[in-house]
Structures are given as C-alpha cells and as structure tokens.
C-alpha cells in the first residue's frame, strides 16, 4: 500500500471554559500537521511539557476527541467521516492506545487476563477459550511475559513495569499498525523504563508497528525515536529527525528544554547553584509562564 499511514493537516482543538459570563477559549492544539508513511515503521515522538497539548493530540489521533479544525487521515480515511460501531471497531483494530498510569488504566477489581481475553474476543477470529488464551499468550510472549504469569491476577498483584507490559501486550493482540503511547514510562521506575523503551524498538523492527511516543523525557526520546516534534502551548515549534533536532536544537524553546535536562554524569557539588535568567524570571511572578522567557533565551 502506498500513501501515508497517518496524516494530520492543520489540526486544531479549542476548548471553551467558563460559564455564561467570562467565557474564554483555550487552544489546546494549534495547527499541527505531520505525516507518517506506511512503508517505514517508525517511532514518532511528541515532546512537550504539561499543558502543551500532547495528550489532546493523542486523543484526536485515537478518534476519541474531534478536532475543531483540520483533518486527520488514517490510511486515507478521514476520521471525522467515521460512523458507527463497526467502523470504529475496524479502526481500533489498527490503532491501539497505551496510557500513562497502568494502575489507573486497569480496573483494580477486574483480573488482568480478562482484558487480554476480551480484546482477543473482540478483535481476533479466536472464539474458544483455548484459542483466546493462545492469542493472549502470543501477545504476552512478545513483551517477555506469559499467560501463566498473569492468569487470574489482579492489577495490584503485578508490579508497575509488568502491568505496563501487559498493557502493551493487550494493545498488540489485534495486530495494529500503529500504537499511540501517552507517557508510557513516566510512572515506571528508572530500572524498568529501559525495558519498555527497548520493547518499542523491537515492535518497530520486528512487528513493523509504528509508534507515536508521547513524553517529556528527552533522553529516552533521543534513545528510541526516529522523528520528533516539539510542542509548546499547542503549537509545533520544531520538528525533524530526532537525532538532528535533539543534538542541535534551533528554536529557543527546544534549546531551553535541552538545557534543562539533567545529565547523569556527575558534576559534583554546585552544578545547580547557578541561577539562570529563566529561574529569576520564574520567581519574580507568582504565575511563572514559560512563554515570557523568549527574549531571555539565546
């Protein structure tokens, strides 16, 4: 198949807040365009801090939120034209989500394997319980688990890293061509973070799944991603090949983000005592706003 897997054209989302009086509009996502080609699976990273519109963008790609303006095409189909449960199910077979906090994504009163079996029942031809278990087990094997480890377990019985891998396995059952992962490692411990990020590489290389990886962690983004966009207040400020952008950021905001990343190489005492212009400014106002920083940054 030719053509883009996913294409966004001038996508915006505006939220209204306030009641009858003093209504204000808030642009969560502002005129975002990019495309992911079908023939080359890739890890596409969206970077930004909280409030930059990353999650709204993810929800629009998952067709959970309609954009106010612009169009999203998935495999040539306009998401806004999708009608009915059947079309939705066909779309979900191709695009699967992974959420930030696995403890919130799973109902604590339901057994974890139930999610896997239900997904297999809804999205694969398997019908008998043995077939369903086999489908779940195949997906779990891809993330380094097996059905024996999760059968009958409740979410609290698994560690955060295991649970997040179960969430990824669940997303793999329908055989999607794209996974949207919204901050998948921010709630996971440092030692397990790499196992999940490594898993994304494997999915891309072996299963040819494209991954939209949403994060605020520049170091893992550099490690895993092929292409990157940096968002600030709903707008894309910089985009391109991940290594090129992160090694040599051009936009002042990208440079500020990169300079704020703490290097793990120890500098010893005093490295943080230098007071940057940014922090001076942030303390001068009770509501520090990143957008005021522009003139001061290089």
């Amino acid at each position: 198949m030719t053509g883009p897997l996913l294409q966004l054209e001038g996508v915006s989302k505006t939220y209204r807040r306030g009641g009858l009086f003093g209504r204000e509009e808030f642009r969560a996502v502002d005129n975002v365009s990019f495309r992911i080609e079908d023939n080359e699976p890739q890890v596409f990273t969206v970077i930004g801090e909280s409030g930059s519109g990353k999650t709204t963008l993810a929800r629009m790609i998952l067709n959970m939120v309609r954009p106010t303006a612009g169009t999203i095409f998935f495999k040539g189909q306009d998401l806004a034209s999708m009608r009915g449960a059947r079309a939705r199910r066909i779309f979900m077979k191709d695009v699967q989500p992974i959420f930030q906090n696995p403890f919130e994504a799973f109902n604590p009163l339901k057994r974890v394997d139930r999610y896997l079996l239900m997904t297999a029942k809804n999205f694969t031809p398997a019908r008998s319980s043995a077939q369903l278990e086999a489908a779940a087990d195949r997906a779990l094997k891809k993330v380094g688990l097996s059905i024996g480890e999760v059968r009958g377990r409740f979410p609290h019985e698994l560690s955060g890293g295991q649970l997040q891998r179960v969430a990824i396995a669940r997303a793999l059952i329908p055989g999607p061509s794209m996974i949207v992962a919204d901050e998948p490692v921010s709630m996971v411990d440092a030692s397990l973070r790499m196992s999940i990020v490594n898993l994304f590489r494997t999915l891309r290389d072996d299963l040819k799944v494209s991954i939209i990886y949403i994060t605020h962690d520049l170091a893992t983004a550099y490690y895993v991603s092929d292409r990157i966009i940096i968002m600030r207040k709903g707008e894309v400020v910089e985009s391109g090949s991940a290594r090129v952008v992160l090694e040599n950021p051009q936009h002042s905001y990208s440079q500020l983000l990169k300079s704020a990343v703490l290097s793990p190489d120890p500098h010893g005492r005093g490295v943080l005592t230098g007071d940057s212009a940014a922090s001076q400014q942030a303390r001068a106002s009770p509501h520090p706003q990143i957008d005021n920083l522009e003139p001061q940054v290089r």
């Binding site: 801090e49 909280s50 605020h216 962690d217 520049l218 500020l256 983000l257 704020a260 990343v261 703490l262 943080l272 005592t273 230098g274 007071d275 940057s276 940014a278 922090s279 942030a282 303390r283 520090p288 990143i290």
Partner: peptide, 11 residues
C-alpha cells in the same frame, strides 16, 4: 516538568 525541576533543585 524538566524546566521547572531544574530550578526547584537549584533552589
């Protein structure tokens, strides 16, 4: 967030 984190650590 990363930018805020650095300032708070410095403080």
């Amino acid at each position: 967030d990363v930018v805020v984190q650095k300032d708070v650590l410095a403080m």
